[in-house]
Design a protein around this nucleic acid. Sequence first.
DNA 1: ATGGTTGTGCGACAA
Length: 286
Amino acid sequence: MTDPDLLPYVERALPPRPTGILRVATWNINSVRLRLKLLAELATLSDADVICLQETKATNDVFPSAAIAELGYPHQHFQGDKGYNGVAILSRLELNGHGRRLWAGREDSRHVEAVLPGGIELHCVYVPAGGDVPDPAVNEKFAHKLDFLDHLAAYWGGADASAARILVGDLNVAPLETDVWSHRQLLDVVSHTPAETTRFQAIMAGHGWVDALRALHPEPQRVYSWWSYRNRDWRGSDRGRRLDHVWLTQPLAARLRAVYVLKGARDWQQASDHVPVIVDIDQARR
DNA sequence: ATGGTTGTGCGACAA
């Protein structure tokens, strides 16, 4: 069991994946084609069974499927748009049922789902960033984001919460005060406005989702998964936000064993501005 | 208050 006083940050290799543990990673890769080598690095350092990506920025016909299969992830389900968005589930384990959903009346590639061995349902989600101005009346992108969050709430509010289910992704919301470098200064910054954080909490409450990271690393510890490119010394200034999340339904929350944030990935050559978040889940029900 | 950087793809635009 993870020490609750210990931060989840990992600079390089994770602890070895224990026997009987399902390890799932989620990462906003910001172009899967540009960062294929970094994906290989994540696979090596994490030994994850499943890697979920967001912002692949690749249509399905140019997705580097064969190269990723060679990394040990032959089971794949991906959906992409030209230049924007794009999500993928990459797996060493067989993927059974899979599909995608559209929310907020758009064709954007922002969701894929699959069923893992043991009947665990896995959802990979990319919530719209929402632009700069936190006013839905003047910023169509922010209106879309709020609409998208409302659709998530409606969908999960109507779903069976007793299923073994994981939702991961770049949710583009930092919900808690200690999920951002300055709660006060970010209250009117898109990603941490009350309009977003209240919706975020409503989605979670409506389905009984458990925030995996906060289950093992509760407040007031500050934990971030994203640091802007627009900062010369990202580590020194540490103006981060926790935008990348892993949610579990109650049956799986009982089997959660560890959560890691691969902070060292932010220093990789030609890094993404997001770092991977990784969870260990006991495959046995006990 | 402003500007700071990156990716796509060669324009702006999105983040």
